[in-house]
Amino acid sequence: MDGPRYYMACLDLTGRSVLVVGGGRVALEKVEGLLASGADVTVVAPQVVPELTRLAVTLVRRGYRSEDLDGRFLVVAATSTTSVNRRVFRDAEARAQLCNVVDVPELCSFILPAVHRHDPIAVAVSTGGASPALAQRLRDEIAAVVRPEHADLARRLRALRPFAQSHFATYEERKAYFAGLVAEALG
């Protein structure tokens, strides 16, 4: 196995403080994804693309400082300056904070998969940082399989969770109940 084997998880960023260091197009892309997940985003950069000024973020127009990490749940470094990206990663590591340096997997405590959303379903594909282009291609191919009826089914199943919790004593019973409903709905 080459490189790390990542533990896949979905993070609830609702209301959590996230720092993005950098103000260019790549930072904009990351900020949009973070905002879509409900994060409270602060962007630190001496210069920002105009689109960032129109988003619901806190803009700090200056260079990165270590104290910018205070109180953050996670951080994304998206600058074109290698020394700044390395410093952000080092500082985050020293604080045991999750950090992603865009397009530099060896400077990441987490990586971001290619994601397709059809709420509440999210399909994520990762190549472990080996090839974002391949991850995007696979995501697009898999996303073509996810149809509106799958999202509708997911919503109906979510509504049944309280019923299952109160009527089935064990995880195994709940799992079998939901597997049966999915098999019935999708054949």
Rank of each mutant, 00 (worst) to 15 (best):
V44R: 00
H118V: 04
P46I: 00
L19S: 03
S66Y: 00
A96T: 14
R139M: 11
V21Y: 01
R65S: 11
T127C: 14
R61K: 14
D91H: 06
L55R: 15
R90P: 00
L134G: 03
N85Q: 11
P120C: 07
P113H: 12
I121H: 02
V115W: 08
S80D: 15
A94I: 09
G38S: 03
F73L: 14
E29F: 07
G63W: 08
A96C: 14
S131C: 15
L69A: 00
T81Q: 13
R95N: 01
H118M: 13
S17C: 05
S83K: 09
D119F: 13
E67W: 14
G24S: 12
D103R: 13
V49A: 09
A36L: 08
D70Q: 15
D119E: 15
A77Q: 02
G23D: 10
A135N: 10
G15D: 04
V115Y: 04
D68Y: 03
L52W: 02
R65Y: 05
R25P: 00
D68T: 02
A94M: 10
E29Y: 09
A94S: 15
E67C: 11
P105F: 03
L112I: 14
V43K: 04
V48C: 08
R62W: 08
V84G: 00
R137H: 14
V101I: 04
V75L: 03
R62S: 07
A36N: 08
V26A: 11
D119P: 13
A45T: 03
A96R: 15
G38L: 06
V18F: 04
A94H: 12
R86Y: 07
A39C: 10
L74V: 03
G129D: 10
F73Q: 13
Q97W: 00
L98N: 05
C108V: 10
A39S: 11
L55M: 14
